[in-house]
Simulated scan of single mutants.
Amino acid sequence: MNKAFTKETDSEDDEPALAPLPPGGKNYITPQGYARLRAELLDLIDNERPKMVEVVHWAASNGDRSENGDYHYGKKRLREIDRRIRFLTKRLEIAEISSPSVHHGSDQVFFGATVTYADDSGEERTVTILGVDEANSALGQISWVSPVARALLKSRVGDEVNLVTPQGVQLLEVLAVDYPAPEAAD
């Protein structure tokens, strides 16, 4: 078979599935998270992609493409950039911006809260409940659809909530709830 009729993408290049949202759920995101995703999208469109197109064009002009590493790497990187652009575009289209500062001063847990809680063993943890696309567990941020966030949502300081884990039900006590202060209007 002629190489022109073969599939160019590898199985690893298939478009990733969107992170899971509850059925009928919304893609909540903070204004800062939305701005970060939008900035990444614009950088890919305005900077990264044009540079890579230029590299691929230069590599293609060098002649034989079968052993041209720059060309093959450039085409693969271009597919990765295009996939990320599609992903970000879809996520930003369905994003629902929710500012956590509207709950400033509240002792109830809502989206955007920074919650300190103690588990059964008395170990204290502090987490911030953010959107699926912006949460980073290494920074103590969890997605609002995570089991811990689901257990904590709508509870208040002093409440005890049940967290269902594979090891059984764990009791969490809410110790503190904090929200960012509203930004001053200019």
Rank of each mutant, 00 (worst) to 15 (best):
I29V: 08
G74K: 00
L163P: 01
A4L: 15
P147Y: 04
L21D: 04
S137C: 04
D120Q: 13
Q141G: 14
K76D: 12
E40L: 04
R77F: 13
P20C: 01
E124S: 13
A135G: 09
L139T: 09
E67P: 00
I129L: 10
K90I: 08
Q141I: 09
E123Q: 11
D178W: 03
H104I: 00
E96K: 14
L42Q: 15
D107Q: 14
T165I: 06
D107S: 14
K75I: 15
Y73V: 11
P166C: 04
K26W: 04
A35G: 08
Y117V: 03
T165E: 03
N27H: 07
A59C: 13
L92F: 00
R65D: 09
K26G: 09
A151F: 04
D13Y: 01
S143F: 04
A39L: 11
N62Y: 01
H72F: 15
V145Y: 13
L18T: 08
V53H: 07
N62R: 06
V145W: 04
T116F: 03
E15I: 00
A149W: 01
R36K: 10
A60Q: 10
L88K: 01
E67D: 13
Y28F: 12
S137V: 11
N162V: 15
L42T: 12
P147A: 10
V164R: 06
D46Q: 14
L153V: 01
E15M: 05
V55E: 08
N162D: 15
K3V: 01
F110P: 02
E160C: 03
A35E: 08
V102H: 04
A113D: 06
E183C: 00
S106R: 08
R150Q: 15
I97N: 06
I142L: 11
Y117S: 02
S11E: 15
Q141Y: 08
K76I: 10
V157N: 00
P23F: 05
S155A: 13
L41N: 04
M1F: 09
E123K: 15
R38P: 02
T126G: 03
T89R: 05
V174M: 00
G33P: 02
I94S: 06
S146L: 02
S66W: 09
D46A: 12
G112C: 03
P50S: 09
I85F: 13
S146M: 05
N68F: 00
L130Q: 02
S99C: 13
L139F: 04
V161D: 02
P182C: 09
H104L: 04
M1G: 15
V145C: 05
F111Y: 11
V102C: 02
D10T: 01
L88S: 09
L41M: 00
D82C: 00
L44D: 03
R79I: 12
A39V: 02
Y179F: 11
